[in-house]
């Protein structure tokens, strides 16, 4: 079985910051907006190098989404930066009307998604954002798994014409994808081959899925781990092909099981290849204060939970 190791951990938001800085040097149309969270979003480098292409909006996210929409009229490619909660739920109608329905080329970049935001607690830990964004017609939804992938995705979405929601986070997580990867929107990345169960994971849960697959291998179970960085459009073929081989699937995400990746996968399978599925995600609940590790353990978003879900789903075949 193919195994993955890492030598360094970094936060995915820093991958965004690095990608944005590179875009600042290579694409004169890229502009950035922030609602008073420059440091949290790691936008400093872009701002230092391109002060004229940065817009500090203040604590006014609705205005930020509208200004971003307006900047596209004139050929700019705006990247908005704030926490995931304030990038989606707070400004849903602004995104819906001024960006999605108006088909504006805005990149909504959202950090501190999910429970791993940690101690700030449930007011800031959005677990519904993937659902909100994937329901908007025309919106592309991306949730990256490590620093390298987040950097590559940030650069890739500038080349894509249309609204994008790019979700990443705060904690340091293992860097295990290649620095020179080509990021293809909508293209799943198969990480391991297996015959007994498919694990489709997104974001911070991808590494946990790899850890789970190692432990399962020692128990004589081979798991096919697929990194779904793009939740919409979903790579249905990769999912169907894998489940055709393994006969069952576990989905894993740092998000409510209602409205997230798992439900999108279930729809694909129900209409193409019905198969037993188990869902690793938060169970229709808000989060709470705690360290990221404590929260991921308490809410069952880790390798251990994925292993249990795999064992359960294999029995249901």
């Amino acid at each position: 079985m193919k195994t993955y190791t890492y030598t360094e951990k970094k936060d995915t938001r820093s991958g965004f910051g690095a990608g944005l800085a590179e875009l600042g040097r290579t694409n004169p149309n890229v502009v950035a907006l922030c609602a008073d969270l420059i440091g949290s979003l790691k936008m400093d480098e872009f701002i230092k190098e391109n002060p004229e292409r940065f817009f500090q909006i203040g604590i006014a996210e609705a205005n930020m989404m509208g200004i971003a929409a307006g900047l596209t009229i004139g050929g700019k490619i705006p990247f908005t930066g704030t926490f995931a909660n304030f990038s989606t739920g707070r400004v849903y109608d602004q995104i819906r009307q001024s960006i999605a329905y108006s088909d504006k080329n805005v990149k909504i970049c959202a950090s501190h998604a999910g429970l791993t935001l940690g101690e700030d607690g449930a007011t800031h830990q959005i677990l519904e954002d993937i659902g909100l964004m994937k329901m908007l017609p025309g919106m592309t939804v991306i949730n990256t798994c490590d620093y390298n992938q987040t950097k590559a995705a940030t650069i890739a979405i500038a080349e894509y014409e249309g609204p994008v929601y790019l979700r990443f986070g705060r904690p340091s997580v293992p860097i295990f994808t290649p620095a020179d990867q080509k990021f293809e929107i909508g293209k799943a990345v198969q990480l391991t081959e297996g015959a007994d169960v498919t694990i489709v994971a997104t974001g911070h849960l991808v590494w946990e899925a790899l850890e789970a697959s190692k432990a399962l291998y020692e128990k004589g179970i081979t798991a096919e781990v697929i990194n779904i960085h793009t939740i919409k459009p979903l790579d249905a073929k990769a999912i169907i092909d894998s489940v055709t081989k393994t006969g069952c699937i576990v989905t894993a995400e740092e998000h409510n099981i209602l409205g997230g990746l798992g439900e999108s996968v279930a729809r694909v399978l129900a209409t193409n290849k019905p198969a037993p599925q188990e869902f690793v995600g938060t169970k229709d609940t808000f989060g709470e204060s705690g360290t990221p590790a404590q929260l991921m353990d308490k809410y069952g978003l880790n390798a251990e939970a994925i292993i249990k879900a795999c064992e359960t789903v294999i029995k249901r075949k």
């Binding site: 609705a62 930020m64 509208g66 200004i67 929409a69 009229i73 001024s98």
Partner: peptide, 18 residues
Amino acid sequence: IASGSLGQGMSVALGAAQ
């Protein structure tokens, strides 16, 4: 730009102006 849900036009205009 689409409009109808009220209160969004000035922000869009600001972006276009900038």
